[in-house]
Design a protein around this nucleic acid. Structure first.
Lengths: 211, 211
DNA sequence: TAGATTGTTAATCGATTAACAATC
DNA sequence: TAGATTGTTAATCGATTAACAATC
């Protein structure tokens, strides 16, 4: 198959991080070789799908053997652009924002929160993990200057669109929003959402009443 | 169309909460009537898809007019089983678990965190939002007795599978996991995952290097 | 060599969309 | 009535899977 000739389905891209996560886990367990079948069993995905997905980007395996774990990890990191560390801005330092700022699991997976913003005067200047909370009024200028491309929104729903606008103007190209509203952004900007209630509601559909 | 004759595609079920969220927002804006077209524009989904999705469950609209917002909200809440309040157990009271326990946005959307578990002796007995943190050793018994069906896992990756096993034995049928590992559970149990890094990696794929 | 597993093709399956009769 | 929008069918589109030649 041809190297990433533009049209990789987004649904395929969305599975690569899952493969990467599983491979890193395999590596931690000391495994050096794996196969599409093993990976598939762990993830509940067919081996054919894994091979097909990977084939969009190149040939990474060896017939009769499988994949070298470390090689495939490196390839996926390169493809996903996480063979480097991205600086991430976080906007909205409430309970959730604070928890995320404290969370240590981002750095070794390609992302590092380097800037915090909020518009509560009581929070401005406060330090979390060595980062000073800046006022939202400084957001655009700061992000532009620092060349930041990725941001997380952890503000209440009402301010989310407004913040998104600022971020886009500042040159951000990827937004991860925890605010429970669909954001409207230019099509060159990627947005992903996290709303735990959506997941809960999707599951409660399958729970029949009992009590 | 026939009433929920068992085989509704899960991908359709997954969109209903998104519709519900948008409708509630419309209602807050004072709107009483809407159409599949308007809803679709707000969500970036085709109007045909919205009508098709809804048609799996019944006929809720009126030709020439559209949908009564309050009616459609009530119907979706009924379909998703969030026309009631589910008790939810939260396991793992670290930074993230704490933030979630404090978060007030669950209750009015059908879910209420009523139990907290952790196995750090220093945390046992501590109170968050009037809830006492219980030891994991009491988990199975407590959840069984309370008849709890939904749980959230906010433990580190290493303990997640173990906790999931306990939850399943206790009768839980829906698990929302923040731990970055694929859990293995019996097929009658639903699992949903939240791993922000997966979303970030999926987006960084589309960011070309610049600096 | 015999056994295993890849990468890829073609077939299948399922989901989305376009179009329109029905009707408010 | 004229205009609008539903619910549904059939057509299109895209994603998944089965199967296998290639080959390690």
């Amino acid at each position: 198959m041809r190297r990433s000739d533009s049209e990789i389905p987004d649904i395929v891209v969305g599975r690569l991080p899952i493969y990467l996560r599983a491979l890193i886990r395999l590596q931690q367990e000391g495994r050096e070789i794996t196969s599409s079948q093993e990976l598939g069993e762990r993830l509940g995905i067919s081996s054919a799908q894994i091979r097909k997905d990977l084939s969009h980007f190149g040939e990474f395996g060896k017939q009769g053997t499988g994949y070298t774990v470390s090689t495939l990890i490196a390839e996926l990191q390169r493809i996903l652009h996480v063979d480097r560390e991205w600086e991430v801005a976080l906007v909205g330092v409430g309970d959730l924002g604070r928890a995320i700022a404290h969370y240590g699991g981002f750095a070794h997976r390609g992302f590092c929160i380097t800037h915090l913003f909020d518009n509560d005067p009581n929070k401005i200047g406060e330090k979390i993990n060595n980062l000073v909370i800046q006022p939202v009024s400084e957001l655009k200028e700061t992000i532009k200057k620092a060349g930041i491309r990725i941001a997380m929104i952890t503000t209440p729903a009402d301010s989310a669109q407004e913040i998104a606008n600022e971020l886009v103007e500042a040159g951000v190209g990827a937004i991860l929003s925890y605010a429970p509203v669909t954001l409207s952004v230019p099509k060159h900007v990627r947005v992903q959402y996290i709303d735990p209630v959506l997941h809960l509601q999707r599951m409660s559909y399958y729970l029949n009443d009992r009590d």
